[in-house]
Amino acid sequence: MNLTFTEHDTCGVVHLADPRLDASIAIQFKEVFRTLTAGGGDVILDLSAVEFLDSSGLGAIVAVYKALGPDRHMALAGLQPPVEKVMMLTRMNSVFAIFPTLGAALMAAGPTAAE
């Protein structure tokens, strides 16, 4: 699994470089995500490289969001069609702010976030 964290002015960006967020990496994803975001602040999860999300992967996204606690926000960016489909079928698209691209998510996070 290849998960990276980039600090921006108004939030942190977590980028998953794997093509699948599924049962085979869900537990590892949760552990590494929590470590990377331990410093606080709002988070954008950049899924633009992810071509496929299964129910375990979705569960992992929900788990890391809940672990951020009530005072931190998490947005999703760059959902490919199969990923978006799972989010819609499970109604999870009502929970997260979803942006077509990471750039759009950074713009929404604040005027200086993209710099």
Binding site: L58, V62, V86, R91
Partner: peptide, 26 residues
């Protein structure tokens, strides 16, 4: 059965139970 998702109560969001619901839906 698709788990209930209440966006106003994040702490209650389901972390599982989606699998067969997705299969049944599709």
């Amino acid at each position: 059965v698709m788990p209930v998702v209440d966006q106003d109560r994040p702490a209650t969001l389901p972390e599982g139970g989606f699998g067969w619901a997705l299969v049944r839906d599709l």
